[in-house]
């Protein structure tokens, strides 16, 4: 059995699906007809409207901090109890904290590593247990071009995203024989809540250096995610797909 051959809607877990790229991923998957489970620290208008709207039958949200590993694992177990399967995971939750390494607070370093890396690894482990039983599944880790190229002031964030790409390759090898695919998607600078921190000069500089001449949009990324989850990507695993308008080329 593979992810899309089943006529049933896919059951997809998306971490951090209340805003930014995660919100766009949730909306896109719901539009595809999937059953989407997501969690984040706080409820947003987007979440409230989905829970009250026609998609409420296929959408579930829980207030969980991604570094509360035990609660995340319980939530995944609950999803499996309810649905009987987990077809795909989009490991999207993440934070970006910048700063010169020697001036960074230890607490910030721990938060970055805890959510961006350990949180993603532990969520993948929770879901992979069920995917192993089904001998099918697709895991997408949301990485970043920051993990591929060095950027001053983002060394720790970069380490978490590069770590995530390494995790993708290792896990892809580990689970490939059981029909489970693992890939990374590495967006460039997107017009999301996280890029609002950029000042106009930084923004202009990024646009100048981008061959496509603009910042990315969430929709530029969700198409690749949909594709990687789908059966169209059935022979693609262990890859990092860079979606950055060419800034790293």
């Amino acid at each position: 059995m593979n992810v899309t051959q089943s006529k049933k809607p896919r059951v997809v877990v998306v971490s951090g699906g209340s805003r930014g790229l995660g919100k766009a991923i949730v909306a896109e998957l719901l539009a595809e007809g999937d059953i989407v489970y997501t969690f984040s620290r706080s409820q947003t208008e987007f979440v409230t409207s989905l829970m009250a709207g026609p998609e409420s039958q296929r959408f579930s949200w829980r207030a969980i901090d991604g570094t509360d590993f035990e609660s995340v694992e319980h939530y995944v177990n609950e999803i499996f109890e309810r649905e009987g399967r987990i077809d795909a995971l989009v490991n999207n939750a993440g934070i970006a904290i910048d700063g010169v390494l020697t001036l960074m607070r230890t607490e910030d370093i721990s938060s970055l590593l805890g959510l961006n890396l350990e949180g993603a690894i532990r969520l993948a482990r929770s879901c992979a247990k069920f995917m192993l039983q089904a001998r099918a599944g697709s895991i997408i880790n949301i990485s970043s071009i920051i993990g591929i190229r060095g950027y001053s002031g983002l060394s720790v964030y970069s380490a978490t995203k590069a770590g995530l790409d390494g995790f993708t390759r290792g896990l892809a090898r580990e689970l490939g024989g059981r029909g489970i695919r693992v890939n990374s998607v590495a967006p460039g600078y997107l017009e999301t809540d996280m890029s609002e921190k950029l000042n106009p000069d930084q923004r202009d500089q990024i646009i100048r250096r981008t061959p496509m001449g603009r910042l990315g949009k969430s929709a530029d990324v969700t198409g690749a995610i949909k594709f990687l989850i789908s059966d169209e990507a059935r022979f693609i695993t262990g890859q990092t797909v860079v979606i950055d308008g060419g800034i790293t080329c």
Binding site: F80, K129, F130, L132, Q133, E174, L175, G177, R178
Partner: peptide
Amino acid sequence: SLDVATLTAFLES
């Protein structure tokens, strides 16, 4: 090893 991982997943369920 992956068979053992699958076995423990079944046992957990």
